[in-house]
């Protein structure tokens, strides 16, 4: 009896598997048009599809592919490189004309870069490294120095000077952009004569708990040093919102800056509280530029003349917050 059930289950599983594989096979051949067609095949991937900007990117690139007639294979990694990288490598093995990397750090995709180079497929990227890298035909990101300069200028304007002021810098090392701009902000603050609260960049361990970590960090610091902060520079908005809440609850007059221009940060800035400013990074415009590079490559095989661009950003304060499209409402 057991044996018969076992065979029955095996046969059923085999039947299901066959059906699924047959379905996949027919879907694939129908979608790609086979290996011999002239469609421009693009593999797009992002690890950050669960973030608002990552989710927007997936939608926007899918739409761009439709508009340009690309044969798109979109791979979403959920921050799981062990899952995503082999999928991308497998897709490379099946052939493609170009690869589009969205928000996935070059340090995490070494095997993809190698596979792409071996297959002679160029990688077009946005916000995938903070410095020029041979991994990419082009990588367009935002100017981290401009982010640090713009936010520090807001703090300086608010406080009158940075000289002798107590400023905390909160960063998050695993994110290359946040790490770089935090280091730049720290250097600039030291150069301006500010006292760095805690002596160095205060590190938040996880972006998922960034707000609560920053909330506890600033609360505890103010508990130990009442009136010991004039400002808190934070590398991204979510943690900045935690710092801002801690400052408000402690009754401090310190000011906070962030980066990302999320809708919540914009609302806080407009309310006139501790949250002083954030930074808007022009992701739609960057996507347009990378798309243009891709279509040029599609037409005549020309690659961009420079493989790295760091574009300017917009500092957002109470004066212009209402005019900015929040980064979590892009699409």
């Amino acid at each position: 009896m057991r044996r018969r059930n076992g065979w029955g289950a095996t046969v059923a599983a085999a039947a299901v598997l066959t059906t699924v594989l047959a379905g996949c096979g027919s879907g694939d051949s129908g979608g790609s048009g086979g290996g011999g067609d002239d469609s421009f095949k693009v593999i797009a991937f992002t690890s950050g599809n669960q973030t608002p900007i990552g989710a927007w990117w997936v939608k926007a690139v899918t739409q761009t592919a439709k508009d340009n007639g690309w044969d798109l294979k979109m791979i979403q990694g959920d921050f799981d490189f062990q899952k995503m990288n082999p999928q991308v490598e497998s897709a490379i093995g099946q052939g493609a004309d170009a690869i589009f990397d969205g928000y996935t750090d070059v340090a995490s995709i070494g095997s993809i870069v190698t596979a792409a180079k071996d297959a002679d497929i160029p990688i077009f990227a946005m916000d995938s490294a903070t410095k020029p890298s041979d991994a990419f035909a082009v990588n367009i990101t935002t100017d981290q120095q401009a982010i640090a300069d713009g936010t520090l200028k807001e703090i300086e304007t608010s406080l009158g000077t940075l000289q002798g002021k107590n400023v905390m810098v909160i960063g998050h090392d695993p994110h290359p952009g946040i790490r770089l701009r935090s280091e730049l902000a720290l250097e600039d603050l030291k150069a301006a004569g500010a006292n760095i609260a805690g002596g160095d960049v205060q590190k938040v361990k996880s972006p998922a708990t960034g707000r609560t970590e920053a909330l506890a960090l600033v609360t505890d610091y103010l508990s130990a040093h009442p009136n010991g902060l004039d400002a808190v520079w934070v590398g991204w908005d979510d943690a900045a919102l935690g710092a801002s809440q801690a400052i408000t609850e402690a009754g401090s007059t310190a000011k906070v800056t962030g980066c990302d221009a999320t809708s919540e940060a914009l609302a806080q800035i407009q309310s006139g509280g501790a949250f002083l400013a954030t930074v808007n990074q022009p992701w739609p415009e960057i996507l347009d530029t990378v798309t243009q590079d891709l279509t040029t490559f599609q037409k005549d095989g020309t690659l961009p003349s420079e493989n790295f661009q760091a574009v300017d950003v917009t500092v957002v304060d109470a004066a212009n917050a209402s005019t900015i499209t929040p980064s979590d409402k892009l699409g």
């Binding site: 996880s206 998922a208 708990t209 707000r211 609560t212 909330l215 919102l241 935690g242 809440q245």
Partner: peptide
């Protein structure tokens, strides 16, 4: 926190 997200408090 005055807000909610999918992973807060993880």
């Amino acid at each position: 926190l005055g807000s909610a997200s999918a992973v807060q408090g993880s």
